[in-house]
């Protein structure tokens, strides 16, 4: 495995009264695509929300370094609005686009903390090249986009902060198979350009196809982990998440 970028160490998380993560540990290496699969309510989204700072763990640590020679820092007590500045960008469940803002504003707000105006403009143009439809609709309100376009907008917006680590929560949700296929190709490209990706997926087939490694989450605990191709062959995984194929 390459050097660690993110090391989640035995975190315990509560959402209100509910004990959602019961001692989860996982690693994400520099340059990897890592998938988190599991049933509804297994704690996948809570995991991502804890990493990006929206939830605070009761105990345990989250160590992160933005490139391989940097110091490791514990981000588990840092609030969400500061974590994005460290190079972690979280594309939330249900996409979370701002439907009243224009498409362009949605993209620009992704670069909210950046001050480098020229580079923001270049970044913006690059994203418009990846997703040309966003350029066409720049002045429409984001709420008027279709589901697939909204997903592109959410990914584009997450990229506007120039993340080192991109976190995606169910990017394929509610999208048709062709759009999903295209989206994953784009994600693979983004990864090839040096962005590490951690994603949660219900669509386990797709996730295991593209990810280097994967973790299976059940009732707030990691029950299985390993390289994707191995997991895809595992009988339990096939029965539970791959529809028994």
């Amino acid at each position: 495995m390459e050097s660690n970028m993110l090391k989640v160490d035995d975190i315990h998380v509560y959402r209100g009264e509910t004990y959602v993560l019961q001692g989860v540990s996982l690693n994400v290496g520099q340059g990897e695509i890592v998938a988190l699969i599991g049933a509804n309510g297994a704690g996948k989204s809570s995991m991502l929300r804890t990493i990006s700072g929206l939830l605070r763990p009761k105990s345990g640590g989250i160590l992160y370094r933005h490139h391989q020679h940097a110091e490791e820092i514990d981000i588990s007590r840092i609030p969400a609005e500061q974590i994005v500045a460290l190079g972690i960008s979280h594309c939330p469940e249900g996409r979370g686009i701002f439907s009243q803002l224009s498409v362009k504003e949605n993209l620009l707000i992704g670069a909210y903390l950046r001050k480098d105006k020229n580079e923001i403009r270049q970044n913006y143009q690059r994203i418009c090249k990846i997703f040309p439809i966003l350029d066409e609709r720049a002045n429409q309100t984001a709420g008027s986009l279709s589901g697939g376009e909204q997903e592109m907008l959410a990914v584009g917006r997450a990229l506007m902060s120039r993340p080192k680590l991109l976190i995606l929560d169910e990017p394929s949700l509610g999208l048709g198979p062709i759009i999903v296929e295209n989206l994953f190709k784009v994600l693979q490209n983004i990864n090839a350009q040096g962005v590490t990706i951690l994603l949660v997926e219900q669509n386990a087939v797709m996730a295991l196809d593209y990810a280097n490694r994967a973790y299976v989450l059940e009732n707030g605990r990691v029950t299985l982990s390993g390289p994707s191709n191995e997991l895809a062959r595992d009988q339990k995984v096939r029965d539970a998440y791959l529809g028994g194929v």
Partner: peptide, 12 residues
């Protein structure tokens, strides 16, 4: 105003 959590994720 639209979504406090997502706004925080943007660094707001």
């Amino acid at each position: 105003a639209e979504n406090i959590d997502v706004a925080r994720l943007m660094g707001i």
